[in-house]
Design a binder for these strands. Structure first.
Lengths: 137, 137
DNA sequence: CTGCGTGCAAATGGTTTGCACTACG
DNA sequence: CGTAGTGCAAACCATTTGCACGCAG
């Protein structure tokens, strides 16, 4: 998604278009693979030296609220952000702490079918996410 | 697991038996359902008024390292502890933030079989955990 | 113009750390 | 007795908040 498209997208979502918002959203798109707030900040500070950390967090929150991005929590507690919106699971690399998206509609179907037959008692399922840990080869 | 058994268990794991350790491990067993460090501290402080927060965290770390308990991270980033060691998944209640264990060897078998056939390219799976979110009825 | 968005700096909160002291084995 | 464990308080670090100013609509 390029600059113009981002601006159009923000407008369409009824968000005020500010240079900071555009930059932050652009950063998340370019920094593929779940950047932390820190990653985003240092990426942006190249072109926006006076953007403030507080602002970044505020913008991230509003992007999450308006469903432009998703928040992913990690093993060590810090948050990561993902511009990839469709339902997906995550691969966690034990060694490098890298996180990658994993989409697999066949697997989703399998699991959904399983829970269609076998309900969990006293619990109504809303969503199922897999955390797959291992190593990239 | 009662007091005596806990002491025996710690010994068997080559851990020094101190009143603090016993109390903390006992607290986690009794406070079924994934207490936070804070939950544990306030539970223990009834009988051990001068136990220190730092100590609790240190003991929790050593119990985790020695495989007496497991660490579970939550949505909001704080850690929870679980004396339940066998492989299991988690049910997250959206409304109450309650976490419950979910064991289902049939499901595990299904998923393992699936990934035996369909490998993820460039990734070697070590473990798979499901986060099932929804509501308790 | 009006109010949302921003920058700054201080506050927060859960967790960690350093160090002198204590007590388990 | 020697060393691992403890208590305390200060440090950490990612994130949040409050407030005055600035800019988008």
């Amino acid at each position: 998604m390029n600059h113009k498209e981002i601006i159009a997208y923000l407008k369409q979502k009824n968000l005020r278009v500010t240079p900071q918002r555009v930059a932050i959203y652009e950063a998340i798109c370019k920094l593929n693979n779940h950047p932390t707030a820190e990653n985003i900040i240092s990426f942006i500070q190249v072109n926006h030296p006076n953007i403030s950390i507080g602002t970044v967090y505020k913008v991230l929150d509003s992007l999450v609220e308006n469903n432009l991005i998703q928040k992913v929590k990690t093993e060590n507690g810090s948050m990561r952000y993902d511009s990839h919106l469709s339902k997906h699971h995550h691969l966690y690399c034990i060694e490098t702490e890298k996180i990658e998206d994993y989409e697999d509609s066949e697997l989703d179907k399998l699991i959904n079918n399983y829970f269609k037959k076998k309900k969990i008692k006293n619990f109504q399922i809303k969503d199922i996410k897999l955390q797959i840990t291992g190593n990239f080869k």
